[in-house]
Design a protein around this nucleic acid. Structure first.
Lengths: 224, 224
DNA sequence: TTACGAAAAATCCTATACGATAAAACGTAT
DNA sequence: ATACGTTTTATCGTATAGGATTTTTCGTAA
């Protein structure tokens, strides 16, 4: 019996892809844990095909790894060195992105930035985990928006595929307050961009990233 | 009837992935052309499953695009703006990569670079197309090697996923001589790295990339 | 000749069956 | 108690059927 395709879900695989990514994000699937195609198909109530397609894409994203005749498993959390490498990549590309974005910033772009800032004016009530996830999602959107405004699609998709917010979230899923410091820094970044001061914008971004790395590092040091 | 897995083919999907990528590279599948799952399964003599998995990965690579209820089709060749964006990305990341690689270059790394140079000491006889593809493959390996030597796996895989040599090859698959000029520039790059002169190495890389872009541009300008 | 509409073909998307392999559980012997 | 070998289980990889949708083809009318 074929499943009817709703207009809201033109591609089942896309939904499944996002679902599995959420499972990884939320530690429902733990780092290193095996990811069974059969089990996922049963749990998500779909056939194996969309699961396989989603996992193939996640493999390309390096969020899962595949071992021949054994199956998929979730990627391990970042090592110390990998975290430093990730931030080195971000320093380089996000400074360039904000430079480009500031250079060609329109009124509309400015509006979008401020609208994104506004989404976290007040954090919704709920568990610390929920609040942290909320801020983390804003962070992901904010940084991606700057890449969008840079106008370079290659840089944008390269950044997207680092999945840095997912990696960082998996490192420290329980913390809460410290992360909110980032919100002020986001404001500083937008202010610098709005003033069309490229050098200031670069500095604001670098400061934000350096601080972000410092906030994460302690969580990594107390790991095995 | 299930197919027996040979030891040389631990993951059929990987082979299929490479096969389809070659079809795109060699214009057997033209830019914009539809990519039928059924047809590929018939032609490559495998079931649909590995085809679907390979296409899902190629979609993540942005080498094919998927339209709901219509299927996959090959990505269009780069527009003028996209080509400039691609090179902007390369300027930024490859200069950083060569800086890192030069900084930590070992004797072994130096050997690998020279070995890669040696692979194109003499271009094998055959059609112009063959020769061009041969040089193009060396070019891909050479640039990837520098990312490897940089030690930053995020930057390496970000570069890998731009698939720049595939994009560029699709733009100008018929040319020949001009491309060989790049070989001398590769030599200059290795020489600069071997002398551990970081600034010189950066310059050599930038020069190479700028020239490479200039060599490609004419082909793009005469396109629709 | 061109435009429009209906029928036919091709294709996608899902579901499911089955053989082959690897991982895990279990029992026995040392 | 531990190590080893066998059996059981779980999972992968492939193949194939069938419904739903889109694209193409073909015929008719203006």
């Amino acid at each position: 019996m074929a499943k009817v395709l709703s207009k809201n879900h033109p591609l089942l695989t896309d939904d499944i892809y996002e679902s599995i990514k959420s499972l990884l994000m939320d530690h429902v699937i733990l780092p290193g844990e095996r990811v069974s195609i059969d089990a996922l198909a049963r749990d998500l109530k779909v056939s194996q095909t969309p699961i396989r397609e989603a996992l193939a894409r996640l493999e390309a994203d390096e969020l899962v790894v595949r071992k021949p005749l054994t199956g998929y498993s979730a990627t391990q959390v970042l090592t110390f060195k990998e975290l430093l490498d990730l931030y080195e990549f971000r320093f380089l590309n996000e400074q360039k992105a904000i430079e480009l974005a500031t250079k060609k910033l329109t009124i509309d772009g400015e509006k979008k930035l401020k609208a994104e800032l506004a989404t976290v004016k007040k954090i919704p009530p709920g568990s610390k985990y929920k609040a942290y996830r909320f801020v983390s999602e804003h962070d992901a959107r904010f940084h991606q928006l700057i890449f969008q405004l840079s106008g370079n699609s290659f840089m944008e998709s390269a950044f997207l595929k680092t999945h840095c917010h997912l990696h960082l979230f998996r490192l420290s899923p329980t913390t809460s307050e410290v992360r909110n410091l980032a919100l002020k820094e986001h404001g500083d970044i937008v202010k610098a961009m709005a003033s069309r001061d490229i050098k200031l914008a670069r500095t604001a971004m670098l400061t934000h990233l350096v601080n972000s790395r410092e906030r994460i590092l302690p969580f990594l040091l107390e790991m095995p």
